[in-house]
Structure formats: C-alpha cells, structure tokens
C-alpha cells in the first residue's frame, strides 16, 4: 500500500465531517472516492495531505506513519494533490508553477537561499528545462507556458494544478474533482492522461469525481462516502450493483 488511512474522524464544531473513514491505495493503481456534496471527500483529502488535523485516526504513506507530519513533509515523501477550488499562484506563470514544484526537495534550503541572494537562483539547467517541458507537454500546456495563472480559464487552471502536482514526482496523487469545468472532449483527454500517469509514471491516483461514470471506468476499487461515513467499498461492478449506493447517491442523480 502506498497510502493507507485508518478510522479517520474529523469534527467541525458539532458537525461530524468524517466518521471513522478508512481507505487503502495500492501502488500504481487508481482508486475512486465518490459521494454526494458535503459527504466529506474534500475534508478527507485535507486529512491525507496534512492540511486538516483529524480528531482520530492515522495516515500512513509508503508504510511510514505520517499522521503528525506537515503537508510539506508528506509532499517530500511522495504525496501530491490538486484542489477542488483552484489554488493557483496567481502571479506566477504556468511554467513557473511547474518549475517551482520540480525544484522542491533538491539540495539544502540554506545553500539554495545563499545562491538565490547572489543571483544564481534564477538559472535553469538543461536537465531541469527538459523535465519541466515534458510535464508541460504531457498536459498540453506548452502554448500557455508563459501566461500568468490569474489570466487562465477554469479548464486550463485545472490542468496547471495537475501539472504542478505531477512535477513534484509523486508516488500518489490526490485529485479533487479534476473534470469539473472541463467539457466532454477535455474530460476524455483527462481520463487518458490519468491512465498514462499510472502506466508511464507509476503514480497511484485517488480520484474524487462527480462524474461517476469516469470513476467507475478508471478505478480499480471505489469507496462511497455519505455524511462522513463509508457506505460502500468494492470494485466498480460491485458499486454499480450496491443497493445502498443506489439509494443514497446514484439514485438521486439519475
């Protein structure tokens, strides 16, 4: 298991946003997480990535307990994520997003800061250039590379978030509704990119999606949340057939 959460509980005041939720993500696999709005999916991602401190439960990354580790420490251990509400760096260009993510975890921060002060920090070496360019091309962002993020549309913005996450060379990537704001063609392209991430770059993916069909077609296993609780877990076929899911979720959307 590259990522494993056990019995995660989160409370906001009186509201129980997550109630003993567990999830296991095998290496190089796609796992789906679905559920109606307010089910707690985004909160769960917060717990996994270290932004939300759980009341109870543990998170393990590649076998190591990271429940008390900071978000940046988890990132360095190979966890990356995207955000449902875009969290782009408005003043930076698309290329700078990828470059910054790519540079993390290389060298001591102190020597780097010293280099930055004397003016060696702005340079890129050919290897770095190649890596950044390959990520940009993977997401079809080469043409937009020099535009500041604040000037991008929602669809491109989602791709930039993805590119930024992938540039950190993650072993597991959490995607929070990556297809919202994309049209049908872009969604199909996205599904293809996700497959390639898994197959070519050996990244495990956790996919939160409102596009249930996309999840069921991509994921090896799917977990269904409702009101902070797991109401079903299984293969896509099992989930399709599950009566509780039908009632709580699928039924309401069709």
């Amino acid at each position: 298991m590259i990522l494993e959460a056990r019995d995660v509980t989160v409370r906001y005041g009186g509201l129980v946003a997550l109630d003993g939720v567990s999830l296991a993500v095998p290496d190089r696999s796609i796992v789906g997480l679905i559920g109606p709005n307010g089910a707690g999916k985004t909160t769960f991602f917060g717990v996994l990535s270290g932004l939300v401190r759980p009341r109870a439960g543990t998170v393990a990354l590649a076998g190591a307990d990271v429940t008390r580790r900071s978000p940046q420490a988890r990132a360095r251990l190979g966890l990356a994520r995207t955000f449902q509400r875009l969290e782009l760096f408005g003043e930076l260009t698309v290329r700078e997003h990828v470059l910054l993510a790519h540079r993390q975890g290389r060298g001591s921060p102190f020597t780097r800061f010293a280099r930055d002060l004397v003016g060696l920090g702005a340079r890129t070496d050919p290897e770095e250039d190649a890596a950044v360019t390959s990520v940009l091309e993977l997401f079809g962002l080469a043409a937009a590379a020099d535009r500041p993020a604040a000037a991008l549309g929602l669809g491109t913005g989602r791709l930039v978030e993805l590119a930024r996450a992938v540039a950190t060379r993650p072993r597991v990537l959490l995607l929070d509704e990556p297809s919202s704001g994309l049209d049908a063609r872009e969604t199909a392209q996205l599904a293809e990119v996700l497959r390639r991430l898994r197959d070519d770059r050996d990244v495990a993916l956790v996919l939160v999606e409102h596009d249930v069909e996309m999840v069921l077609s991509l994921a090896r296993r799917v977990t269904v949340l409702d009101f902070g609780q797991v109401i079903a877990e299984g293969t896509p076929d099992e989930i399709r057939a599950d009566a509780a899911v039908q009632a709580a979720y699928l039924g309401t959307t069709t």
Binding site: S70, R74, E87
Partner: peptide
C-alpha cells in the same frame, strides 16, 4: 525563494502541498 514567496502569498495550502 522569490517564486516560493509569490506562491505563499497566493495560496499557503497549495504551497505547502508541493513541498
């Protein structure tokens, strides 16, 4: 460092989660 600071000004959660 300048990029990191610009990133931090825009979004601290996103900055932390890229490491």
């Amino acid at each position: 460092t300048g990029l990191e600071l610009a990133a931090t000004r825009s979004s601290e959660p996103a900055t932390a989660t890229i490491g």
